[in-house]
Amino acid sequence: MSARTTAEASGTSGGEGLARAFYRFRQNPLSLVGLVLVALLLFLAIFGPLVAPYPEHLAGEVSVLDRFKPPSAAFWFGTNEVGQDILSMVVAGAQVSLLSAMGVIVIATLIGTLIGLAAGYFGTWIDEVLMRFTDLILTLPALILAMAIAAGLGPSIVNMVIALALAWWPGFARLVRGEVIGLKEEQFVVAARAQGAGAGRIIFRHILPNVTSPIIVKMSLDVGFAILAVASLGFIGIGVRPPTPEWGVMLSVSRSNLPHFWWTAIFPGMAIFVAVLAFNLFGEGLRQALDPRARR
């Protein structure tokens, strides 16, 4: 558990280190698949409504005659119960799913990192209190906690993101605390203390830069799981609400169309699956590239 090996071998200190990390990343074809899929998802999240084949369907301008069309040349993924093109919906859904999942992870990372830094660096009763609280939240099932918070805050996308983030940060806090406890005994930290450097300087100049690799790896893995959580909340009806195109919501609505109109369920389901997989492959690739301990 030497923090030095992480920091040194990840070597993103200089440009050369980054090049080496990217070389290691490319060694694994699965990581590249993850990278391509993540890039595609990000592209859709930004330009989705522009590249959707039937953007007017998203605004509700549909023809009743197009209801429940099976997949065809005109509608690759078929149409739903009101005649909307499912491909357009899936493409547009990337925006809500990705942006809210990334929002969840960014907020969770900020909270978790600050708590983990404080607990790990200061130790004693500060660590005790912060970690008791962290463990308490960790023992509650994240989704149920998020449901409770979201119910309390009222239904909106922003509230859902806040709710999930409040349930999500403990993992980051534990990760960061563990790394900090190893790092603060490192000689370069002792050297800084011996020079008279204060806690703020040591934490932000010496410790935090050496924890960024594991944080980034966990962030990219967790975005995948957060996409799943966002879809789950949409599915049970307390996250994103129906007119907004979102994969979980689409799945939920499709339940009454099964089994006959299978395409209304299968494509949003596949979108969720591919997104979770993409971030997992990408995150694992980053882990292998940045953290030599993970390699055989």
Binding site: R4, A7, E8, S13, Q187, F188, R205, H206, N210
Partner: peptide, 9 residues
Amino acid sequence: HASLNPRMS
């Protein structure tokens, strides 16, 4: 090796 921060120039 241990007494210099690897992330600092």
